[in-house]
């Protein structure tokens, strides 16, 4: 898949995956990895930025095996941001899909 596409939607996917449930980094990466093939290393800086922008917050939780894990939780402003982002994406995807249909190129594939 085109890496530019991935970069664009990675933030949306990460936000979506923690929207309903707090997750720790590794868990999150495994889930995102199922949706698309992405370099594992790049999700951490993205999370870091989301935390810096206050869309996410973190807390430590003891785990049964091994050291405490850092969980990511979507904040209220993160939720608003996710809503905007989702709307933007749907609109954008719609426009692009329509454009493909208009061009008639999808029949040729």
């Amino acid at each position: 898949m085109n890496t530019q596409f991935k970069k664009g939607v990675l933030e949306l996917i990460v936000l979506l995956s923690i929207a309903d449930m707090d997750k720790y980094g590794y868990q999150l990466i495994s889930e995102v990895g199922e949706i698309m093939d992405v370099n594992e290393g790049t999700i951490y800086p993205l999370l870091k930025r989301l935390v810096n922008d206050e869309y996410c917050e973190t807390y430590l939780k003891q785990s049964a095996e091994g050291p405490a894990r850092k969980y990511y939780h979507l904040t209220d402003s993160g939720r608003i941001y996710l809503k905007v982002l989702t709307q933007e994406w749907l609109k954008f995807a719609d426009t692009v899909n329509n454009f493909i249909k208009e061009s008639g190129f999808d029949d040729k594939i």
Binding site: Y26, K48, G66
Partner: peptide, 18 residues
């Protein structure tokens, strides 16, 4: 920031090794 990121990577490697 660096310490934070590297800590995360270390944790990730640990879990992978598990």
């Amino acid at each position: 920031e660096r310490r934070d990121i590297i800590d995360e990577y270390m944790g990730h490697i640990d879990l992978k090794m598990q």
